[in-house]
Computed example of a mutant assay.
Amino acid sequence: MQKVIIIDDEAAGRTLIRQYLADYPALVVVGEANNGVDAVRLIREFRPDLIFLDVQMPGLSGFEVLGHLDEIPQVIFSTAYDQYALQAFEVHAVDYLLKPYTRERFAQAVQRVTRPDSVNIQRLQPLAESLLTPAVAAERYPDKVLVQTGNRLVTVAVADVIRIEAEGDYAMLVTAQSRHLSNYGIGALEARLDPRQFIRVHRSDIVNLHYVREIQKYPSSYDVILQNGDVVRVSRSYMEKIRELTF
């Protein structure tokens, strides 16, 4: 018997996985979670052999969930977003199910868990790359995001975000008119934004290049001056990104 936990913020997604798993009596569902925080708690409690993991969820993203674990079980990602495929295989995911998927496609993923000898690692990387073409990735970057404010979700246009700064485990989106605290960490937000527009300059800061007024160069550092007057120091580990933009 192998213990399984299903993690998906959509009830329909959890139900489908549970129904498909009925074909595999050796895989026993011991818990379900609809957000990243509960997912970490369940995984620590039950120590499953396998988790089905969504990427975008309240509280913590799928990748942030894995980052909170001391021991990572086998992971099959189940998500509607194809732009995270390469990142999923970088954390050694068994498979990446792109919603909507068929029972046959689900069976292929499960076979990689129940029959490890059937996994051809050299075939997994091309699979990930086939899911993530430049054209598709460009279309997948959101134009707007929803950010919780009290009991409400408000829409923020990505183009209006001047900078993103870390706030503990969360991140603050700064616009000209307001500041919005996201439920996601700065690393998860970086993965969802167009790298041609948003550049990480510090472990705690991402800036929107459209709002950069100037960059002040010092002997061993840079300061990014934004149009709203904010000054963001470029850390040493991110200085190369600034140099790459210099002509």
Rank of each mutant, 00 (worst) to 15 (best):
N183R: 14
D194A: 10
D205H: 11
Y24A: 10
F106K: 00
V4Y: 02
N183Q: 14
Q87I: 04
M172K: 13
N151L: 15
I43M: 03
D117N: 05
I206Q: 13
A88E: 03
D230W: 02
G59M: 06
P195S: 13
R213I: 07
V174G: 11
N151F: 13
L97A: 02
A33D: 00
A159M: 09
T246W: 12
T149E: 15
H68N: 09
N183K: 05
Y96P: 01
D194S: 11
L189A: 14
D194N: 14
Q87V: 03
L53C: 08
F46R: 15
T133E: 02
V29A: 07
V145P: 13
E10N: 03
V147P: 13
Q56Y: 07
T133A: 06
S178Q: 09
A135Y: 04
S182P: 11
E139Y: 04
A135N: 05
D70C: 07
V28K: 09
S118V: 08
I215Q: 08
I242F: 05
G150P: 12
E190G: 05
E240K: 14
L189F: 11
D82T: 01
Y211M: 04
V201P: 15
K3S: 09
V174N: 11
Y81H: 13
V65N: 03
Y81P: 00
S118A: 14
D223C: 10
A11F: 09
V75H: 00
